[in-house]
């Protein structure tokens, strides 16, 4: 029965997702199922039953006029043929590549978050040399930028996914969809662990403070642990977020209006900014925020409060996105 269901779905894959088409798919599915069950009860084998049902199914062309889907059944009349088809192999290697680039980005961000720790630590070890700390900090930032650039270049070969209109056949779409559903649980666990690490990051520092440890511990090691926990938490967010994004990118390849393109919910829709200015500003938004954060923090050394930049920044981003959402 699974074979028949897939057969039917692949027939309907590129049809518009309208009420008529859904109804047709449902009704035809019912008829196929009835016939299949009867053939089975007559003692036919699985393969025989499937063969008979498919050979007697007919042709969607007959439904074209009734469902108003002429242009979909005869794609040669449309500009559909110049779509880049994505094979299952490509889908698999895209997901693998996206994961690798996600890990690289995540490592970069991890280094960025940790870059202040040598500075803090050295200050309390008493070597007195803040130059060494600064050198270590910039070294880490340099490596991080290396990671960012590499992961960007690494993904370049997939940039056609954004530039060109593509399509993906039913079995691949179905495969990716299954993979995503299977991954959902892991994704949820990783996000939860990440959130918990971030939320609990101040706990070791608080405990050390309570235990009245030396200044090296409370002022030196404690912040390092705090940064490390946040860094690992963010690492999880980025790694798992990239993997999820890989699935969703592939699943939104098919035209949204078709039966094969209805896997990704509309909230995931990419935001397109109407005004050129806004879109230019948004493209450098997060780097600018990072810059503000680092400048403010280093100028005032008020690390305990400067993190609110991130909260404010994400609120502002949400606000701008909602203002510009095209309905």
């Amino acid at each position: 029965m699974e074979t028949l269901r897939n057969y039917l779905k692949s027939m309907f894959q590129n049809l518009p997702n309208t009420r008529e088409v859904q109804k047709a798919q449902y009704e035809l599915g019912q008829m196929m199922e009835d016939k299949y069950n009867e053939l089975k009860s007559e003692g036919k084998s699985e393969n025989e039953a499937i063969g008979i049902v498919i050979s007697e199914f007919g042709n969607l062309e007959e439904l074209a006029a009734d469902l108003g889907i002429d242009s979909y059944i005869h794609p040669e009349q449309q500009a559909m043929y110049d779509k880049r088809n994505i094979t299952q192999d490509e889908a698999e290697s895209f997901i693998a590549d996206k994961q690798k680039s996600g890990v690289m980005t995540a490592l970069g961000v991890l280094l960025c978050i940790m870059c202040v720790t040598p500075f803090i630590l050295l200050e309390y070890i008493g070597s007195g040399s803040s130059v060494l700390g600064l050198a270590a900090m910039f070294g880490m930032i340099a490596i991080a930028i290396g990671f960012f650039v590499f992961s960007k270049v690494y993904m370049d070969k997939w940039s056609f996914l954004n530039r060109q209109s593509c399509s993906m056949d039913f079995s691949t779409t179905d495969y990716v969809h299954h993979e995503r559903e299977n991954y959902r649980m892991t994704h949820a666990v990783l996000i939860t662990v990440g959130v918990m690490l971030c939320v609990l990051s101040f706990v070791p520092a608080a405990i050390m403070d309570e235990l009245d440890m030396s200044e090296l511990m409370t002022e030196g090691v404690a912040p390092v642990i705090l940064f490390a926990m946040i860094a690992v938490g963010v690492f999880f967010f980025i790694v798992t977020g990239n993997r999820m994004k890989a699935y969703n990118t592939l699943l939104s390849v098919n035209e949204r209006g078709t039966m094969g393109g209805s896997f990704v919910d509309s909230q995931k829709e990419q935001v397109h900014y109407d005004s050129k200015t806004v879109s230019a500003v948004m493209s450098v938004y997060w780097p600018t925020v990072t810059c503000i954060y680092l400048c403010w923090s280093f100028l005032t050394m008020d690390w305990h409060i400067t993190w609110v930049v991130w909260v404010i920044a994400s609120l502002v981003e949400m606000f701008i996105k909602n203002m510009n959402r095209d309905y």
């Binding site: 047709a24 008829m31 007697e56 007919g58 007959e62």
Partner: peptide, 8 residues
């Protein structure tokens, strides 16, 4: 009769 013929 084919399924699609019937439904149409």
């Amino acid at each position: 009769i084919k399924e699609t013929t019937l439904y149409s």
